[in-house]
Design a protein around this nucleic acid. Structure first.
Lengths: 344, 344
DNA sequence: TTGAAAGCGCTAACAC
DNA sequence: GTGTTAGCGCTTTCAA
């Protein structure tokens, strides 16, 4: 398979009777070359299907056109939506993505960062994991800082450091949208199934939930504030089980993310509680899974293409020495489907 | 951010009072170095957080520890499950994955392959797109052949070329499992909503469907063989709309993949046709979305971790000059959930 | 055990 | 326009 040595610009140059530099010029288009020679060289490139060695190029260029992406859980629909959009955005801009899955494990986070540093990525994007902690981990902060000193880092979330830009979903406006919609549709008994109090996203949502409810003159019933163990479907089920014992149900529930909401709704049905007839459900993230259930789940959407585009452009700008924004917020909007109804 | 020049082994060597070669030896562990010097160097590496330039390394090593993966549609749950598992498998083996999304577009397939060739990946894995055509595209075949001559290629599917190993789901056994299960549970009226006749996976399933039905002594009703335009949810809906007009319904339907099945089931419900009470539904691929619906959809599963592991190991073996298997089949099994019932 | 030096494949500065 | 040459940052002989 590999028995024949890799062909180089020297081989091409020799056979074309020109210098390697000329071949290089043709390859990069960095200078004019006489048409006749150019054609001769291009002919040979085609003949041998010659592909210039990107590693050798990167060695002089100092730009690799790699963007590293460190993600907490690639199998989670939220991260999946985000990095899929990032791959596409990067590809449009001539970059490719090196994707790492840390499973929120600190060892793997460090390994990923080390790997990306060694590979001299032009920038890296970090999404999920310790970065999202409300109370920053000092070890992680050190890692982040020493990394950012060498390579531009962009956070998909809240930036924990002045030197690092963050591009984050606007959790407060998200909550505003959700509560406002429910209130407008007559809901006064609203609950929230949530998890991840240690993460700032949840914390912001919880605080804003309280504020929004107060502003609407609504009472928050402790019982309807359901904390579950994780961000997965199973946790949603657990939340639903808790609901089935209640004397009085809220008329609407918020779900911290789509997986939880899906699990919640599914189990609710098993308890004979119908969405939206008995209870309305509103979720956050609006990933593709919300349209798979019956009823389809209304959810607060972050335009993932725009989100990713901002992320990738910020990363590239920074790597080109561009100005550093500190924090960008992605404006959410409500994607209404079938899981909410009007209360009369 | 980048104002200070990247530190190299020369800097380390100078400051430690040793030669660059010695630093290299310590980095790679390729030869013994006196403990005292070793410690001095390691101290400096830590001090400067020195990370050796992987590009420079790759230039001599000839091994990059990159595996390229060319995927038809990263946002599709099937490919998503597969490449997620590949990322994990590769990472366990010390490799990282360069992921490309072609959207089944031939231009992008070529670009991806070119990119991976330029980056001297140790091997590449191709999944979906023209590779899956029943009637091979000669252009693509040429691309594949000239690629495989330079870099090991593994196909996640059926190998179209002797020199290329394929690791594929066993579609025939999958169909056997599905039909056998349904027949055992009393079904005699079985339909199939499918798409992608131009792909060998569908073709194999269709042929086997006929064979299995014949073997069970069952008649295939043309009306229940529903061809839809694509592999997405919308196509599933279209299939369901067709069902709603039928005088007689089958007692069980097969769905070509999970997205189609989910869309099919969802629209069926809207037509007042209940799964599994009115009709049983069995799908192929068993991705995570089958457990999100109510009822959860029974589906033929390919152990994605094993699938990916085989794929990645085959790729690595090949890149190390190991023996080339030609075609491996992944054994399916049936993951029963809630969408099938027994007919009495 | 260690250092000097060549080389990996390319680009870019400099001359012509 | 085009060739020569000197790197880019490592690894790996080859000597010592």
């Amino acid at each position: 398979m590999d028995e024949m040595k890799n062909i180089t610009i020297y081989d091409i140059a020799r056979e074309a009777g020109v210098s390697p530099a000329t071949v290089s010029r043709i390859l990069t288009g960095s200078a004019n070359v006489r048409t006749e020679k150019k054609e001769r060289v291009e002919e040979l490139i085609r003949k041998y299907q010659f592909k210039p060695n990107a590693m050798a190029r990167a060695l002089t260029d100092t730009r690799t056109h790699f963007i590293g992406m460190v993600v907490a859980d690639v199998s989670n629909p939220y991260y999946h939506s985000l990095f899929t959009a990032c791959i596409n955005a990067a590809s449009r801009l001539g970059y490719s993505l090196l994707l790492f899955n840390t499973l929120s494990n600190s060892r793997m986070e460090e390994q990923a960062v080390t790997y990306l540093l060694e590979h001299r990525v032009d920038a890296m994007i970090i999404s999920g994991g310790r970065i999202d902690l409300a109370q920053q981990d000092p070890d992680f902060l050190r890692l982040l800082e020493s990394t950012a000193r060498k390579t531009p880092v962009v956070v998909a979330g809240r930036s924990p450091l002045d030197m690092i830009p963050g591009v984050a979903a606007d959790h407060e406006r998200s909550m505003d949208l959700a509560i406002r919609h429910l209130v407008r549709h007559g809901h006064r008994k609203i609950g929230f199934v949530y998890t991840g109090k240690q993460f700032y996203g949840t914390r912001e949502k919880l605080l804003r939930f309280e504020a929004d409810m107060a502003e609407a003159g609504l009472e928050i019933r402790k019982e309807w504030l359901i904390e579950v163990p994780g961000y997965d479907m199973r946790s949603g089920s657990i939340g639903a089980d808790l609901m089935s014992d209640m004397k009085e149900l809220p008329t609407a529930m918020l779900g911290i993310n789509d997986l939880v909401s899906v699990g919640f709704q599914k189990r609710l049905a098993e308890h004979g509680i119908r969405v939206p007839e008995d209870i309305s459900l509103l979720s956050f993230d609006d990933t593709y899974i919300t349209s798979m259930t019956t009823p389809a789940i209304s959810s607060v959407d972050y335009d993932y293409d725009q989100f990713a585009d901002t992320l990738v452009r910020t990363a590239i700008n920074l790597s080109e020495g561009g100005p550093a924004v500190h924090q960008v917020l992605i404006t959410p909007h409500l994607n209404l489907k079938e899981s909410c109804r009007r209360i009369d």
